[in-house]
């Protein structure tokens, strides 16, 4: 098999995930796009490992070992990321990453308290600041 097939597919998948990370607004959709990017890297690792296991004399199968490690780290990342998204959703009532701009300068009027929709929207300002300190 020509090596360009998996390499090109991996590059295209990575750029699809890049578009998703930049263009999506829901935090969980951003996490899905990150998964796509990690999978593109995995495909590259596996393809180059299969190529090198025949082309080189002695390999440690480092590509497949790294692919397995990437899969495990992606599982850990999705667990932590979803816990953070759920904590933010409980505190703010939204998982919209465009509204989480408390640390940005010059966006005071449209803060998260003004247009947040949900149960935690009526929480006082100090509670949200404490939540920000904990989250």
């Amino acid at each position: 098999m020509h090596l360009a097939y998996p390499a090109v597919l991996s590059a295209l998948l990575f750029c699809t995930g890049l578009y998703g990370v930049l263009a999506r607004r829901n935090a969980i959709l951003v996490l899905m796009s990150v998964e796509l990017m990690l999978n593109a890297v995995n495909l590259n690792l596996v393809a180059f490992d299969v190529w090198l296991s025949r082309a080189a004399e002695e390999t440690l199968h480092s590509g497949q070992a790294l692919a397995l490690f990437t899969i495990a780290i992606a599982a850990a990342e999705i667990g932590i990321g979803l816990a953070i998204v759920l904590a933010v959703h409980r505190n703010r009532g939204t998982s919209d990453i465009d509204r989480l701009r408390d640390t940005a300068e010059g966006h005071e009027p449209d803060g998260p308290d003004g247009d947040a929709s949900g149960g935690a929207a009526s929480a006082p300002r100090s509670a949200t600041e404490k939540a920000e300190a904990t989250a």
């Binding site: 098999m1 090596l3 360009a4 295209l12 578009y19 596996v46 490992d49 190529w51 497949q64």
Partner: peptide, 29 residues
């Protein structure tokens, strides 16, 4: 994304134009 895809595909195809994976024999993985 389109710019990154164009750059990556161009570089990858140019670099591995004459490289083939040998899939015969025992499975590598």
């Amino acid at each position: 994304a389109v710019t990154a895809a164009a750059a990556l595909v161009w570089v990858v195809v140019d670099a591995f134009r004459t490289t083939w994976i040998d899939l015969d024999g025992a499975p590598a993985g």
